[in-house]
Amino acid sequence: MTDCTIDTTIVGKSAQGNFDCLEILNRITRTRKIVFDNENIILDEYTDCIERAKRSKKPGWEMMQGWITTLRNSNKMRTVYPNFSQNEEVELEKLRFDRTDWIFVKSCKASLNKELIAIESDYTPEIKDFLLKKHSIKVIHIDECIQNNLYQ
């Protein structure tokens, strides 16, 4: 089964009630495993987003909590052992790429499909081009998933 890496912003927006994001997550989960790092940094970020939404009484938090449970119970989590070389870190720093997003890029680099679904403006055209050329990572904006009916 193929896999996909999901930036925390997608999970956070889903937990806040963005049903387009939730629909994309459900579509992806039907056909792919979701990539997680071996140190649970991604899972912890997802859980924090869901907990914040719960405390704020946002409409999507229960669905996202159920989504995480479904991933666990249906063997839809792929654990990878992400890493960057020192040179790769220097290159990302030169691009001023947000360090909080490094775990997703590192995990995606270690994944099978090398697809990263994101919303954030941190993935500038320059960074997206670098990731594609240097690591074969394709960053796909959530709007592209929606507009092009990806992951059907």
Rank of each mutant, 00 (worst) to 15 (best):
I28S: 02
D20G: 02
T2L: 09
C49H: 03
M1E: 14
R27C: 10
T9D: 10
F104V: 06
L92S: 01
H141F: 03
T79M: 08
E89W: 10
R32D: 05
S107R: 02
A53Q: 11
G17D: 05
E45W: 10
R96G: 09
E91V: 00
G17W: 12
E39Y: 15
V90F: 06
T69Y: 05
F97Y: 03
T8Y: 06
K33W: 00
A118M: 01
R52V: 05
S14R: 13
S74R: 09
D122Q: 05
V139L: 13
N148Y: 08
P125D: 08
D37T: 13
K128P: 02
D122H: 13
N40S: 06
T47D: 03
D122G: 13
S85K: 06
E144T: 03
V11Y: 06
R96N: 11
R78W: 06
G66D: 08
D101A: 01
S74P: 05
T70Q: 11
K94D: 13
C145N: 15
S56T: 11
K58S: 14
L95M: 03
F19E: 15
R52K: 08
R78H: 05
A15Q: 10
S111P: 00
T47G: 00
L25R: 03
E115V: 15
N83E: 11
A110P: 00
L25E: 14
K138H: 12
N18L: 13
L150S: 07
T9I: 10
I137M: 00
C4T: 02
H135P: 00
Q147D: 14
